[in-house]
Amino acid sequence: MGKTLIEVVNLVKYFAVYTRGILLRRKIGDVHAVDDVSLKIEEGENLGLVGETGCGKTTLGKTILNLIEPDSGKVYFEGLDVYETLRSGPEEKKKYLRRSMQMIFQNPYGSLDPRMTVYDIISEPFVIHRHIPRDEWEERVYSLLRLVGLEDYHAERYPHEFSGGQRQRISIARALATDPKFIVADEPVSSLDVSVRAQVLTLLENLQKEKKISFLYISHDLSSVRQITQSVAVMYLGKIFEYGPTDEIFEEPLNPYTIALLSAIPVPDPERKINRIVLPGDVPSPINPPSGCRFHPRCPWATEKCKKEEPELREVRKGHFVACHYAENFMKGEKPLPTVQQ
């Protein structure tokens, strides 16, 4: 195991929800977007963050970068308190943090300023940070373009002249321009076509290997998470439900939600037997989530205990954390699965 690059400690972010109107508006409740989340990312490691709509995965990613102000909790980058430093730290530490932590967005059509050329977009980090001398800017822009698989002449064009996959490459080049050590990649391939998706995924894989960049890879596409991450965190309504090494969790999930989620994905192999757990009901709204275990209304194995007591995220095996009262029951060959009552 390498050094810890990012440490998230008890991070909380709620969004208050109001009735419509300005004068007489009342608070209806809170969206529990990020609810007491703790995570670690090792140097050179990719962490996958998976979950369905409204589980708070994007909010978590943006809050780690302080693009959204947290309610409480801390994030450390190489031991440096991110929020404290950005608020009142010395200028050069602020710049160091901003340079070291970058983000790639989901929508390649919205994440590039339509009125700037690709050259201006990729060189903007140089303008802001002045971390490399001016006469090297051009060479750097071209080498970044080549690194992400584009050509020199693309620099003079505008974003609307590119396809979705190419724009995502431009976003990646911009993020790389600051020489970051950590990148939050929020669904970077979900709006891309199947064959183009693989191009961007391999690009991310190579960046991790060759540039030793760690990614927080946010996605609902579990297959790509399996492909490019070393560890994975599963979120449900603002909480981490399971967290540990990717292969271990995909082989032997120990939280009923993870089990159901993984069984839901169709596998491109017609001979594979499908042993699917279909969850009843809809993905619930994160406003005022259910009591006890948030998953209990949909969980096929829920008991009285689950309705009342919220399970802690606990280490069930080395490095494998699960938030379920009955995690041990799901381990292979240890105890039989509780019966599904449906």
Binding site: K62, L65, L67, K94, K95, R98, R99, M101, Q102, M103, F105, Q106, N107, G110, S111, L112, D113, P114, E124, P125, I128, H129, S171, R174, T178
Partner: peptide
């Protein structure tokens, strides 16, 4: 818009975001 957020993540100042973007 995501491109404004992206610029913020780069560490751009408020006035740069306002006048340049």
């Amino acid at each position: 818009a995501e491109f404004i957020q992206a610029t913020k993540a780069l560490g751009a100042s408020k006035s740069r975001i306002l006048f340049r973007h």
